[in-house]
Computed example of a mutant assay.
Amino acid sequence: MNHSGFPNSALICVETSENIGVITLNRPEKRNAMNEEMITVVGEVFAAPPKEWKAVLIKAEGDHFSAGLDLSEHRTRSPEEVMDISSHWHRATQSVSDSRIPVICALQGYVIGAGLELASAAHVRFADPASRFCLPEGRRGIFVGGGASVRVSRLIGVSRLTEMMLSGREVDCAEAISIGLCQRLSKPGRVQEEAMEYAREVSTNAPLSNRMILLALAQIGEMPPASGLFTESLAAALTQTSSEAVDRMNAFFAKAHEKQL
């Protein structure tokens, strides 16, 4: 099902497949280079996702997830305008990171610059074996502006990010998996299918459990240990006493009892 309530853009397709939201970058002739219109749509979708969505898949048409930022929009900006568009990107990608439902990215081909910044805001990243990752901004005389300095550094560490940005080199899929840039490796040519299967799987979790996994873990990671443990106790108390958790646990014990008979 297509959604007409979101901004009308031929560059971003927003659909519902059963209870999964599917957001497709649809600019294959430009290798899905990200422009202001595209990131605006992404931000507005995640600001108010349809209530029926239980997970979201972000994918792309064509051979590449995204070859980076559409630099043609940025050749004549003032410093103030650059800060404004960077802040706009930060708000949009933060809305992805703050999503109450799991966000999964299916990555193939080039995942460069702004494309990697969008992917790093997702909760789970699936990578095709032929995918390539790169942050070339330093080689172009500029700096990242869509959140990589925060999100990618938290995924792989400041020292690895520094090396990637200084060299602008391509990181292959095997290295991306080994350093934590991506979590799951797909079979060749099946990254979108496998990412969708995962989205369907996690969509069957209790919504409150998913919400706590996504949001509480992110907060706990920023807390001192004692505060983190206290927050963990609160999350456990809220989830384990919910009506859905009680129903699921009763169903589990009933099934276990049946096997014993």
Score class of each variant (00 low, 15 high):
165 M>N: 14
173 C>V: 12
168 G>E: 03
85 I>G: 02
13 C>V: 14
222 E>G: 01
251 A>H: 06
87 S>L: 15
3 H>M: 12
61 E>R: 09
25 L>G: 04
127 A>F: 08
80 E>C: 00
121 A>T: 05
48 A>I: 07
48 A>M: 03
185 L>G: 00
241 T>G: 01
238 L>S: 13
159 S>C: 03
72 S>D: 14
193 E>N: 10
75 R>F: 11
57 L>C: 05
218 A>F: 04
171 V>D: 05
28 P>M: 01
63 D>H: 12
224 P>L: 15
94 Q>P: 04
207 P>S: 00
225 P>Q: 07
16 T>D: 04
141 G>M: 07
195 A>I: 12
31 R>S: 09
154 R>Y: 07
234 L>P: 11
48 A>H: 09
60 A>Q: 06
72 S>I: 13
143 F>G: 10
18 E>I: 00
160 R>L: 13
167 S>N: 04
68 G>C: 08
161 L>C: 06
13 C>L: 15
20 I>T: 01
229 L>M: 07
198 Y>Q: 10
42 V>K: 06
39 I>Q: 08
97 S>F: 06
156 I>D: 02
98 D>Q: 13
4 S>N: 13
59 K>D: 05
50 P>F: 15
42 V>P: 12
181 L>T: 08
119 A>R: 04
9 S>P: 07
145 G>C: 11
3 H>T: 04
192 Q>M: 15
45 V>S: 09
63 D>F: 09
127 A>N: 04
256 A>T: 06
7 P>D: 10
37 E>S: 10
116 L>Y: 00
77 R>E: 06
129 P>I: 10
21 G>D: 03
17 S>M: 10
135 L>G: 02
130 A>V: 08
206 A>L: 10
215 L>A: 07
117 E>W: 09
230 F>T: 12
227 S>L: 15
250 N>T: 08
69 L>D: 14
64 H>L: 04
37 E>N: 09
